[in-house]
């Protein structure tokens, strides 16, 4: 039912919510990541975190959907295998993380570095527009 005014509001608590998300671990990873990123930005090496890819074998990250892991760090990709172009490393609870320069091209729509060329949409944007 659409409420007419604030006086039709009643507060009810949120239900119990199951979440396996390890907040402490993830927040620490994000903070350490941004510490390095802030320096990269300051030194004008990058303008946006989307220019980056994060490499890690962390089981906590692997357990996440790829897109959730990417968005958590606002990077263009999170990968497990090593690649060239290292720009910084950090560790969380013994898991190592490596920050890499994205090797793909910037999608003209979403600005993630996931296109084959600068003129082409990435897969997601292509689907969103024409799917």
């Amino acid at each position: 039912m659409k409420k007419e005014s604030v006086f039709d509001v009643v507060y009810s608590a949120l239900p119990m919510i199951e979440s396996n998300f390890d907040e402490a671990y993830m927040v620490e990873a994000r903070e350490k990541f941004f510490e390095i990123v802030d320096n990269l930005k300051k030194e004008k090496v990058i303008k946006s975190t989307l220019e980056l890819v994060l490499q890690t074998k962390s089981p906590k990250i692997s357990a996440l959907e790829k897109v959730d892991a990417e968005d958590w760090f606002t990077v263009s990709k999170v990968i497990e295998h090593d690649e060239a172009g290292e720009m910084g490393v950090f560790e969380v609870a013994g898991d190592s993380f490596k920050i890499l320069k994205a090797s793909k091209c910037k999608c003209p729509r979403c600005w993630k570095y996931r296109s084959k060329s600068e003129e082409e949409l990435c897969h997601r944007c292509n689907e969103a527009l024409h799917g």
């Binding site: 949120l14 239900p15 199951e18 979440s19 998300f21 907040e23 959730d68 968005d71 958590w72």
Partner: peptide
Amino acid sequence: ISQMGALDQWILAHAKGVFD
């Protein structure tokens, strides 16, 4: 909520703790 993504479930779980 049960059909939501992990990040959304996380913020809701966190919000629940705060709101309670």
